[in-house]
Structures are given as structure tokens and as C-alpha cells.
Nucleic acid binder design. Structure first.
Length: 261
DNA sequence: CTGCGGTCCTGAAGGC
DNA sequence: TGCCTTCAGGACCGCA
């Protein structure tokens, strides 16, 4: 389930490999996963690759191709198509970009501009200040975990990194955001940045379902460094507690009831 | 406006 | 063994 670190890893790979290439053909194997007219990107050069939240942006000469991998999406360069390949983009140098997606939640979308992208600040940029974070939490009645994952408030944080950041900060994911003390807010602010940076450093998380791969088809390594995600019943890394799994906002939430207060 | 629960989709895993 | 149910989850939609 690609979140900021996974998408960033793929984005960096694309930046190295496809900038300057011209799109020769687009094969849409699953209509649901391609929004817009594929003809509108053929013949155009990739001028830049960007990322906003969990969306990859291919900047073309006259428009943009947005890509969201959702849970099981993969972008693979010069691999073989399989039964989950939904779109194949071929470039003028014969390179082929495969968009695979088992669950078909992901999409590619042709847009004229980037107005539709409405996201909160990127947590690893200077736009994301402690002041912004504190103000944001103070105004919200929702649980702190759901705030971390709200893309309009903070960009790119999903279930894995929200769980991990809350563990590092020693905060119960179900706590109401506005109830956090200044000290806890500061700790969470730093923890969030830390887990995201670590995620990028280790090339992302390839968790239990193992769907995430980088552009070359390789797994990430961050799953080896996770502390709570998918660790139900295991002993806490920090204390004698046992990792518990609950549901929050309908999503699996892992934490240590003994040291996350 | 906010917050919630349902929905999309497929395969894995668990129950009987 | 085999069928059926449940679960996983980001973002969007509709409803209270």
C-alpha cells in the first residue's frame, strides 16, 4: 500500500529513467483504470516527474498524467506484463512502463492542469511547520490517527506510517486530536518526519501482502524496521506490553496499550 | 459543515 | 476437501 515513502521511491526511479522520453503508445487493458483519452498523451515528451501526496505526476509538454497506486498498484519498467497489468505505456526508445494493479483501485488520469490536487502540506517540507501541526490538531475532534491520514490536512501519510509515528511518540491512536498536550504534539511532529524519512531511506515498505515494488520490481526494506504495523500479539519493542489491533475509522490500527497513552 | 459508514476489487485466510 | 464468509485498504460518495 504505497504511501509517501513508497511513492517517493517510485517517483525518484521514474525521474532517472523516463524524463525526456516520448510516449509512443498507450495500451489500456482495463478501462476502469485509465481516466481520460489515452490519445491525448501520445507523442508527448515527459518533461518532469513530480509527486504530490500519494500521486505521481508525469509532466508532459501540454498536459499531465496523474497516477495513483492506491493499495496494490505497481509501476514497473521493462518487466513482463502479467494478469494484473492494466495499462502499458511504450516510449520511443522501446522502454515500456507497466501499470499493474490486482485490486483495480488505482488509476491513471489525463488532466490539463493540477487544480484538482487539493492536499495539505507535505510533511517533509518546510511548509509543514510545528505551528501548523499544532493549530491543526487543536481544531479537530477526530482521533489523532485519522487526522494524520487526512490528505487534505497532511499529504501522503497512510495507515502504516500513521501507526508507526504514533508508536514512536508514545501516543494512543484513538486519542482525540485536540486533547494532545504541547509536548506530545512536538514529539509526534518529530516522529512523523522521522518514520517517513526512514521509509524513504529503506526504499519503502513491502508489507504482508507484498504488493509494493519499486520501478525495478524490487521490494522495499522498511518492513524490517516497523515497530507495530502487522505485529498484533507480539511483544512491544519498548516495554513488556503486547501489541494490540483495533479498528479506527474502519482501518486496522496497531499499538501498544502499555506505553502508548 | 462534520463525521460516519458503505463501496470499489481481488485473493488470501479462516471456519465449519 | 470444499464451499462460504471475512478481511485488507485510499479515497470518494451519500446520508444523518
Amino acid at each position: 500500500m504505497p504511501e509517501l515513502p513508497e511513492v517517493e521511491t517510485i517517483k525518484r526511479g521514474l525521474e532517472k529513467k523516463i524524463v525526456g522520453l516520448k510516449i509512443k503508445s498507450v495500451k489500456v487493458l482495463s478501462a476502469k483504470n485509465f481516466i481520460g483519452d489515452p490519445q491525448n498523451i501520445i507523442g508527448q515528451k515527459i518533461t518532469a516527474v513530480d509527486r504530490r501526496a500519494k500521486i505521481i505526476i508525469l509532466k508532459l509538454e501540454i498536459n499531465f498524467l496523474l497516477i495513483h497506486l492506491k493499495m496494490t498498484g505497481q509501476l514497473l519498467l521493462n518487466k513482463h506484463p502479467d494478469k494484473y497489468t492494466r495499462v502499458i505505456i511504450e516510449f520511443n526508445n522501446q522502454d515500456k512502463l507497466y501499470f499493474n494493479d490486482l485490486r483495480k483501485f488505482g488509476w491513471m488520469k489525463v488532466v490539463k492542469d493540477l487544480k484538482s490536487l487539493k492536499f495539505g502540506p507535505e510533511p517533509l517540507t518546510k511548509n509543514f511547520t510545528q505551528k501548523y501541526f499544532k493549530n491543526l490538531l487543536g481544531k479537530s475532534k477526530k482521533s489523532i490517527k485519522l487526522i494524520l491520514m487526512d490528505q487534505e490536512k497532511i499529504s501522503g501519510v497512510g495507515n502504516i506510517y500513521a501507526n508507526e509515528a504514533l508508536f514512536l511518540a508514545g501516543i494512543d491512536p484513538a486519542r482525540k486530536a485536540s486533547d494532545l498536550q504541547d509536548k506530545e504534539i512536538n514529539s509526534l511532529y518529530l516522529s512523523l518526519k522521522k518514520v517517513l524519512q526512514q521509509g524513504i531511506l529503506f526504499g519503502g515498505t513491502s508489507a504482508k501482502d507484498e504488493s509494493y515494488r519499486n520501478l525495478s520490481g524490487e521490494k522495499g526494506q522498511m518492513q524490517k524496521h516497523l515497530r507495530v504495523y502487522e505485529k498484533e500479539g507480539q511483544q512491544c519493542f519498548r516495554c513488556q506490553g503486547k501489541i494490540k489491533k483495533i479498528k479506527l475509522g474502519g482501518r486496522g490500527t496497531y499499538y501498544c496499550p502499555a506505553c502508548q497513552k
